[in-house]
């Protein structure tokens, strides 16, 4: 077991190494530009996303990188400890671990509902771990997030719920209508835009929330136990829906503690165990060994 101070020292060392590495990198200013993000993005809400996709160098980079990330809720006991992680463009990644392991926290660090205490997180090559409060909305416009409790506004129509991200981005009403129509079709709710969302079943409400997450065509979709409130068959349906979204080119990070989902699908698997990330590329077998006390796999990229 590491105590917090030793962990901090280690991470400081790594910071120095990284700084040296960065000095050698030709496009170092790409990360430094992040500091002016808020001001720039006021004029061009999409620049975050466009830069991430448009630049040849950024396109080859992983879409999401964690570098020595620590998150503390209690002073001497990190919830996330020294997380090093790379997620490539177009990947489908499961994040799992028992309840309270830190799955939600990991995702919250990405959509900036929580802030890292140490280390940094790169999204499309940009450091998002220390964005100013005014820049956070522009980060979120490039992410889609789906939750266990749907987070749809029950008294709004399906259309109104799905259209929210587009209205925020000031898209013209006609375009909003056609885009929402398309995305409702993708999630299997075509023609149901005028229904009050509260009258839909749980599975359908979750589809509304998925539609809202992808309507802005984000590069990355985060799902935090999206099947947690659904019965098993509906859970598989929603997982399949995310896989379809993934097939269409979107990167998906899918957090769940539902073993039955993990077992049936071959996707890359990250396990949060004792506040560290364990890679279990070949599915559940290694996690099972891990659980039964066989030596821990080293976290990828850790020293």
């Amino acid at each position: 077991m590491f105590d917090r101070d030793r962990d901090r020292d280690r991470s400081r060392d790594r910071d120095r190494d990284r700084d040296r590495d960065r000095d050698r990198e030709p496009d170092r200013d790409a990360t430094d530009r992040v500091h002016t993000l808020g001001a720039r993005d006021k004029k061009k809400p999409f620049s975050f996303f466009r830069a991430g996709r448009g630049e040849a160098s950024a396109a080859n980079k992983p879409i999401l990188v964690f570098e020595g990330v620590y998150k503390y809720f209690k002073r001497d006991q990190p919830t996330l400890r020294d997380i090093d992680l790379e997620i490539e463009r177009g990947e489908f990644v499961f994040v799992t671990g028992p309840s309270g392991a830190g799955k939600s926290t990991l995702l919250k660090l990405v959509y900036r509902a929580e802030t890292v205490d140490e280390g940094r997180i790169l999204f499309c090559g940009r450091d998002i771990s220390r964005l100013t409060a005014t820049s956070i909305p522009f980060l979120r416009r490039n992410l889609g997030v789906v939750f266990q409790d749907f987070k749809v506004v029950p008294h709004w129509t399906v259309f109104e719920n799905v259209a929210v991200p587009l209205e925020i981005m000031k898209m013209p009403a006609r375009l909003v209508r056609s885009r929402v129509g398309e995305v409702l079709e993708r999630v299997g709710l075509s023609g149901r835009g005028d229904e009050r969302t509260a009258t839909l079943s749980g599975g359908e409400q979750q589809r509304v929330s998925v539609a809202r997450a992808i309507v802005g065509e984000p590069a990355l979709v985060l799902a935090d136990e999206p099947t947690g409130n659904l019965d098993p068959q509906l859970a598989v349906d929603i997982l399949t829906l995310f896989e379809e979204i993934h097939q269409a080119g979107t990167t998906v990070v899918f957090a769940t503690h539902d073993r039955s989902l993990l077992e049936t699908r071959p996707h890359r698997l990250l396990i949060i165990d004792d506040s560290r990330i364990i890679e279990a590329r070949s599915g559940l077998t290694q996690w099972a060994e891990e659980q039964s006390g066989i030596s821990a796999l080293p976290a990828r990229g850790a020293a």
Partner: peptide, 16 residues
């Protein structure tokens, strides 16, 4: 509350 939370998660600024 839900409405405000949804707006903020979808990238609405405070002024929006």
């Amino acid at each position: 509350k839900t409405e405000i939370e949804v707006l903020k998660l979808c990238g609405a600024t405070d002024s929006f």
